[in-house]
Design a protein around this nucleic acid. Structure first.
Lengths: 203, 203
DNA sequence: TGTTAAGTACACCGCCCTGTGTGCTTAAGG
DNA sequence: CCTTAAGCACACAGGGCGGTGTACTTAACA
């Protein structure tokens, strides 16, 4: 997309460069953090010359911002678009994704960049709000009394589990899931508990 | 304390150097983060020559470790040693301390250092475990059914509030406190709310 | 064929940062 | 007095990192 194939007649030889850079970013920034990953190392991992990298991204900051923007569609749809689960099960499934994520990249970026006005920090906020909103939507679908509040609470649990997993070096998501179960049961009037009754239940 | 006044006869002229360095660390590391705070700036803020700083701490890593070790007594006793509160109130009071803390320094350090084996990362783990343990003790005192579990859950809420406050740039502790109230009410058998229960009136 | 976009290889600059080397000053003893 | 510890001022090495300049190569066109 973007400017890569918008040449006068449609060249497409170097189609993969930008993708490879972003792909290497996802791996290295997660494994080592943003600040500890130099552009030299990143370009080597992406098998791209440094010169090319700086023709696709004007600065490392811009690359970091793009790196974060990439998660939006991916992570969100993984859990929330599953139609084989009831709304209640979908809410709980959000706590079953830690294996791939050593730490939520958004928390890491916000801490490492340390500037709330950095473009990447803005993306992080947007993403966190989007997650809370989708949780709230699902909570509403599940018939929660106060969906916004439940969504915000569940989002906080996810972030708590991520942070605690990082600091303690031990999986904290089971604890978060246990709390989530309590909150969900408290917030959803005994009407539509679960048992796969995913018809009706709207409004 | 330590090696400063253990000279052959007991000199004490430079008593404040080490303290000033650590004090400046607490301020700067919190405000700017660890990696973004250079030793030059830190020494200037502490009004100490760089040479002196490196005679008290062999490396910046060691200074960071000491900086984190300093919080243990302070933060823990602030909330838990209050005898004017019931155990249940003490558990909730742990969510009333965000004004001074832009972000839990332990989470920040764990993310910035990015090495679980770094001495400072070990202190961070120790501290987090200590907090959970003190919460569990208080939960036991309050008559909770499973104090360890409740302590771990409340600790997760605190970390979640801290992380979310950082990323969203908005205070998330009220949300955490609301969840805490639910968990506490669920975990403590209605019989013994406290010796001093003004009313029940939860929910 | 020539043109043009895309990419490569590699050296290089400037900046900042951790950490040291050196010589000088100050005060507390004896 | 002299000794000794603590500290200061300042320069500087060494390295990493972000970012650039330059010259060369490759492939898709027309």
């Amino acid at each position: 997309m973007t400017e890569l194939e918008k040449g006068p007649t449609g060249r497409r030889r170097g189609r993969g460069a930008r993708e490879r850079i972003l792909s290497a970013s996802q791996q290295l920034f997660r494994e080592q953090g943003i600040n500890r990953t130099g552009m030299d190392q990143l370009c080597a991992a992406a098998e791209v010359s440094k010169r090319t990298a700086y023709q696709h991204f004007t600065s490392k900051d811009e690359l970091v911002a793009e790196y974060l923007r990439r998660f939006d569609p991916t992570v969100l749809s993984d859990v929330f678009d599953r139609t084989d689960l009831t709304p209640r099960e979908r809410l709980l499934a959000a706590f079953d994704i830690p294996p791939t994520t050593p730490l939520c990249p958004y928390i890491g970026a916000a801490v490492e960049l340390h500037d709330p006005e950095h473009p990447a920090s803005r993306y992080a906020r947007d993403y966190k709000k989007a997650v809370a909103a989708r949780l709230a939507d699902t909570a509403r679908e599940a018939g929660a009394a106060d969906p916004e509040q439940l969504g915000e609470q569940l989002a906080l649990l996810i972030d708590g589990a991520a942070a605690r997993t990082r600091v303690l070096n031990a999986d904290a998501f089971p604890t978060a899931a246990a709390i989530a179960a309590v909150l969900i049961d408290n917030a959803i009037p005994a009407t539509a508990s679960d048992d796969r009754r995913r018809e009706e239940a709207s409004s």
